[in-house]
């Protein structure tokens, strides 16, 4: 027996259309990557693994792919820690500064990426602090862009959080760290997990800021794809897109499985 009220047909149709609009570009990328023709066109001129093989044998694309992966991984790890701490502060502080900081932390995603990238590049160059066009400089930029997503999701998971649970743990002898680790962290884990996924996806696909801050001899995947389209317009870029989509999907599944496992352990 189901208690849920029936969903009106019109809602289902609209939801179905929305899903189609979201999935259609992905289908186009996949089909374009499997194109047998010489150019990135749609509909494809026959299906073939030609460009997938070209991607797998291209030193430029493969190194760009793994470079982007490592960059996104590092950015995600750092922004998850920073974002979670910031969210905890924002959720628990009643000061006026917290209200101001809530908006301030969101600035990197409010600003156009090109503006942020150029501003950072000018800052790094004029201050001469050795970060212009270095991996550290690029990583800082990615952390700036990805942290707001972690802050937003963790803050959401802290809404309605019952602080008395943590206080109860403390009253039973748990240290602050233990209480945080065993109570708070477990409750907000889904929020952190969602933030992680967002951070990884945003960093992996980051193009605008990377345009100004990319490192010599190293191209992240979005740059490599752009350059390929600019000069050759081959479907290798779309084939790279297939692997990028696959990576994001796999990361999402792994992350959600990890959170589920945590729930199992907690149970």
């Amino acid at each position: 027996m189901r208690d849920e009220s029936p969903i009106p047909l019109v809602f289902k149709v609209v939801a179905g259309l929305a899903l189609l609009v979201l999935l259609l570009p992905l289908a186009i990328v996949v089909l374009a990557g499997l194109n047998a023709g010489d150019y990135l066109t749609f509909p494809p001129q026959g299906l073939s693994l030609r460009w997938v093989k070209a991607f797998l044998s291209s030193p430029v694309f493969l190194s760009a792919y793994f470079y982007s992966f490592l960059l996104a991984l590092a950015a995600t790890a750092i922004s998850t820690v920073i974002g979670t701490l910031a969210a905890l502060y924002l959720a628990r502080s009643g000061s006026r500064a917290a209200a101001f900081l809530r908006g301030y932390f969101m600035l990197p995603i409010v600003l156009p990426g090109v503006v942020l990238g150029l501003s950072l590049y000018v800052f790094f160059t004029t201050t001469d602090i050795g970060l212009a066009r270095t991996f550290t400089g690029l990583l800082i930029c990615h952390v700036l862009v990805t942290s707001p997503f972690v802050i937003a999701t963790v803050t959401a998971s802290l809404v309605g959080f019952d602080v008395s649970l943590e206080e109860a743990a403390r009253s039973l002898g748990a240290s602050p760290w233990t209480a945080f680790r065993k109570v708070t962290l477990r409750i907000i884990a889904p929020g952190i997990s969602a933030g992680c996924i967002f951070a990884f996806i945003v960093s992996f696909g980051q193009f605008e800021t990377t345009l100004f801050l990319s490192v010599p001899n190293r191209e992240p995947l979005p740059m490599a794809m752009y350059i390929s389209l600019r000069y050759k317009f081959e479907p290798t870029a779309a084939a790279a897109g297939i692997f990028a989509i696959a990576l994001v999907v796999i990361s999402t599944i792994i992350t959600s499985r990890l959170v589920s496992l945590r729930r199992v352990f907690r149970a």
Binding site: L118, Y121, F212, P216, E219
Partner: peptide, 11 residues
Amino acid sequence: AYESSFPWFPK
């Protein structure tokens, strides 16, 4: 040190 992130002018 090879850079291919065009454009160069703003840099």
